[in-house]
Design a protein around this nucleic acid. Sequence first.
DNA 1: AGTAGCTGGATACTTAAAGTATCCAGTACT
DNA 2: AGTACTGGATACTTTAAGTATCCAGCTACT
Lengths: 213, 213
Amino acid sequence: MKISELSRRTGVPVASIKYFRREGLLPAGRATAATLAEYGEEHVQRLRLIKALTTLGGLSIAAARDVLTAVDQTESTDETLKEISYALPVPVAQAPAGDADEEAEAAAAAAADVADLIAAMDWQVPGTSPHVQGLTTALRELRRLDADYRPERLVRYAELACSVARLDLERAAAFENSPTLAEQAVVVVALSGPLLELLRRLAQEDQVRRRSA
Amino acid sequence: MKISELSRRTGVPVASIKYFRREGLLPAGRATAATLAEYGEEHVQRLRLIKALTTLGGLSIAAARDVLTAVDQTESTDETLKEISYALPVPVAQAPAGDADEEAEAAAAAAADVADLIAAMDWQVPGTSPHVQGLTTALRELRRLDADYRPERLVRYAELACSVARLDLERAAAFENSPTLAEQAVVVVALSGPLLELLRRLAQEDQVRRRSA
DNA sequence: AGTAGCTGGATACTTAAAGTATCCAGTACT
DNA sequence: AGTACTGGATACTTTAAGTATCCAGCTACT
């Protein structure tokens, strides 16, 4: 299949396909001549995955590349899952520091909360995990807003998060050794989140509606 | 407090404060003269909220303005919650259409799945809700990736989402008639999601680690 | 009263991301 | 031989999110 047909099949403009290839998200086609290459179904699939990661997962092109690179370089399911997870950007940008003292104090308190939570949940995660860092930043931010996220409350959220993760990984077991392992793993790790968020909003909407009715 | 002090207190550059005011995220200070205005604690709080929405919530400036505008214009807790929820961008961009036939078929199937889910959960939400639309788009995208999100599986995610929403709204009850209602509501609706996502990733990391150990 | 240093408001500039578009020389069908 | 298409390189465009500059008015210190 030539690039024009790949474009037609996926709805992605030729110029964009070239862009993705340039950025390392899409492997080049099999060259049949100096100015001609052949594309296959794997390219169609890859483009779908790129679209899903960027539109549904909300990833930037650079982040999607990191995820796809991780996917292409690992073998076992578990390793793939971990790589994707770490390649994913944490949804917390570092906020600029305000008052220095206040800042340090808030950071310490947030770090303590995270440590408590990890202990309470008996989670075995390294302190260097980007998610631990991200959670600390997030709690610091929430603390500054006087939001009520004390450990007791946080634990209840964490327990639900555990259940979701169990559901996610249940699926991972099903495609152990599957040829589309990478794609499925990406879906479970990167696309489950936005889906859950949508469901949470719908559930919220329903409950608010019932309350005021 | 003058603008320079507001900047020092919050760590936000003066130019950025002016920018937020220009974009309608931050009310102007009380003018004391043609070229002088007085800012108060409410401006400090508002800037913190803006930072939280953009860095933690991942909202664009435009989206944050919509949320804050909704907040400023409503009175009751329930109304505020709904307005914020609707003002929040749905984390699903419309993907470009590929094959026309295939597309229509996938869209219909996704819409049916959503309808089934809503019926199964007995959710009372209007079909016009942006979240329903978003969920439909998301499922269409996932379906195209051959991801296994059949209704049975989806329902289990939905049930967990319900529990999370219950936890969220439990907090909303606590600040009924509170003077900081708006801020708290924003936290519950817009910032609970990123927090949950972080917890989900941590839980995933823990479970993968245990499995391979 | 003079002046250095802020201020609001307007406007111009900058940077980065995500594409788009153009150009070019080399095929490939007819 | 001619037309249409290709890969590759490069240039351009658009939008978001700030930053920086300018200006005239004020204000506080001296």
